[in-house]
């Protein structure tokens, strides 16, 4: 317990220094010395990472390596678990997200798409309009516009435009997942986190979601956790390899898949373990 507190103090006072100077790219998320504990068990070890704006960053690694846990620190979803303790800094848009109390504002800025489509038992329209409505938007015209834009943004408008008022749960798994993406887009976030968004989908739906992600990166910064290394190779600009709660390697995707620096990365991507 004591050690956690000292680490926490150390982390809070430590200055934020960029990992790597890169004048052309702007880091929208900067993570420094992030440690995360589930009770006494440490799940993330001193993670530091700069995530660039309007890029797709893939997090790969074997099950239980901490990649999903890390993703969930970025919009503070881990707050929902009582036993979680975090120290270190995560700066998004020049704001340390663990030093502000406005989690609501953070989550409107950092959207999330989950592993399994989790649409609410409402109509398609109500699902997409849910976020803006909860922010207090009541104007029907504006809501209509947001819903249409978001559904178009998620490349599913043509499939559902005639059935907006029907239950969203009647759609296929792939369609539901794209509605989930539309629901996240409707909040006009800067960053969208995706936690293995295609792991429950068939290959064709997966392909559609991947094409969508490619398209979305011109408007959003995307951080995606994936089990599928081909997927990471196909869609991401940068890839971080997690192992046992540590970032082993964080590099340009083509580099990490062609000539990784670390032997463990190579072993993982060539399928020797994981």
């Amino acid at each position: 317990m004591n050690s956690i507190e000292t680490k926490l103090n150390k982390a809070r006072t430590g200055k934020i220094t960029p990992i790597k100077q890169d004048s052309e790219e702007k880091a929208i998320i900067s993570v420094r010395d992030l440690n995360l504990f589930y009770g006494e068990k440490q799940a993330l070890f001193s993670v530091s990472m700069d995530i660039q704006e309007k890029e797709v960053t893939a997090l790969i690694g074997p099950s239980g390596c901490g990649k999903s846990t890390f993703l969930r620190t970025l919009n503070r979803m881990n707050d929902l678990i009582d036993s979680v303790q975090i120290n270190g800094d995560i700066v998004i848009d020049n704001e340390n997200i663990y030093q502000t109390n406005d989690v609501i504002k953070l989550r409107t800025k950092v959207g999330m798409v989950f592993q399994k489509a989790n649409l609410f038992p409402m109509s398609i329209y109500d699902n997409v309009a849910y976020g803006p409505r909860m922010q207090g938007l009541k104007n029907k015209k504006e809501l209509d516009k947001i819903v249409e834009e978001s559904l178009r943004g998620a490349a599913i408008w043509d499939e559902v435009k005639d059935r907006l008022k029907t239950s969203a749960l009647g759609l296929s798994g792939g369609q539901q997942q794209r509605i989930c993406i539309a629901r996240a887009i409707a909040m006009k976030p800067e960053i969208i986190l995706m936690d293995e968004p295609t792991s429950a989908l068939d290959p064709i739906s997966t392909l559609k979601v991947e094409e969508l992600i490619e398209k979305m990166k011109k408007d959003f910064t995307i951080v995606i956790v994936t089990h599928n290394m081909q997927q990471a190779a196909r869609i991401s600009d940068k890839t971080a390899f997690f192992l046992n709660g540590e970032v082993i390697e964080y590099e340009q995707t083509d580099k990490i898949f062609s000539m990784p620096n670390d032997q463990r990365t190579e072993d993982y991507i060539t399928g020797r373990f994981g």
């Binding site: 959207g111 989950f114 976020g131 909860m134």
Partner: peptide, 27 residues
């Protein structure tokens, strides 16, 4: 009520009370 509903709603920047009234109680 699946936990994914709670997560889904909270991840959209809603308060706990909004999540309760709009998603959890209706379900």
């Amino acid at each position: 009520v699946p936990n994914t509903y709670r997560e889904g709603s909270l991840a959209l920047g809603t308060t706990k009370l909004q999540t309760l009234y709009k998603v959890i109680l209706p379900s």
